[in-house]
Amino acid sequence: MLSPVTDTDGAPFWGYARQGELRVQACTPCGELRFPPRPCCPHCHSFESGWRRLCGHGRIWSYVVPHPPLLPDYAEQAPYNVVVVELVEAPRIRLVGNLVAEAGARLDSVPPERIRIGARVQVVFGADGLPQWVLERA
């Protein structure tokens, strides 16, 4: 399977994810949340930042089910989904991942016909630390 490629700015995100926490970069002076991580705040231009823990709730903003699979490492799990999730606490931040039945489940564990734009989801983390999403219970 694939592993995240980390850089200096994004390394803390992946470190927290491996611990099962969803955190995003927050500007210290203005409090603006930002993702992807970067050295300078696009709003106030400060270089001071920290990492804010989020609840991990969101809504599916968009999704795709690639046919044939776009990633050879995932071919055995096709058809799989890729979702874009808008975070409840930070609507301008959208994260990409897979909708799964439970943490660590196969990428094909949710049938494509169950995926809906606007569906409420919660972040979970697989053993590899990659953020995944599960449907919230109504």
Rank of each mutant, 00 (worst) to 15 (best):
L2C: 00
L2M: 13
L2S: 14
V5G: 07
V5A: 11
D9E: 13
G10I: 01
F13G: 01
Y16R: 08
A17C: 14
R18Q: 14
R23W: 03
R23P: 02
V24L: 09
A26S: 13
C27A: 09
C27H: 03
T28L: 04
T28Y: 00
P29T: 09
C30K: 03
C30R: 02
C30Q: 07
G31E: 02
L33D: 01
R34Y: 03
R34I: 03
F35I: 01
P36D: 07
P36L: 05
P36G: 09
P37N: 02
P37E: 01
P39Y: 02
C40A: 08
C40M: 06
C41Y: 05
P42T: 10
H43V: 12
H43E: 10
H43C: 04
H45A: 12
E48P: 00
E48F: 00
S49P: 01
S49D: 11
R52Q: 14
R53F: 03
R53A: 15
R53L: 08
L54P: 12
G56S: 07
R59D: 08
R59I: 02
R59K: 11
Y63R: 05
V65G: 08
H67E: 14
P68T: 08
P69Y: 03
L71C: 10
P72R: 12
D73V: 08
Y74W: 15
E76Y: 02
E76G: 14
P79V: 09
V82Q: 12
V82F: 04
V82D: 09
E86L: 09
L87D: 10
E89K: 08
E89I: 08
E89G: 14
P91K: 07
P91E: 11
P91R: 06
I93Y: 06
I93S: 07
I93K: 05
V96M: 15
V96Y: 01
G97Y: 14
G97P: 10
N98P: 03
N98K: 04
L99Y: 13
V100S: 07
V100A: 05
A101R: 15
A101W: 06
E102Q: 15
E102I: 01
R106F: 00
D108E: 12
S109I: 01
S109E: 01
V110K: 04
E113C: 07
E113V: 11
I115V: 12
G118N: 02
G118F: 03
R120W: 05
R120K: 12
Q122L: 07
Q122R: 15
G126Y: 00
G126Q: 03
A127R: 10
A127K: 11
A127D: 12
G129I: 03
G129W: 03
L130R: 12
L130I: 14
L130N: 04
V134F: 10
V134K: 09
R137T: 14
A138I: 02
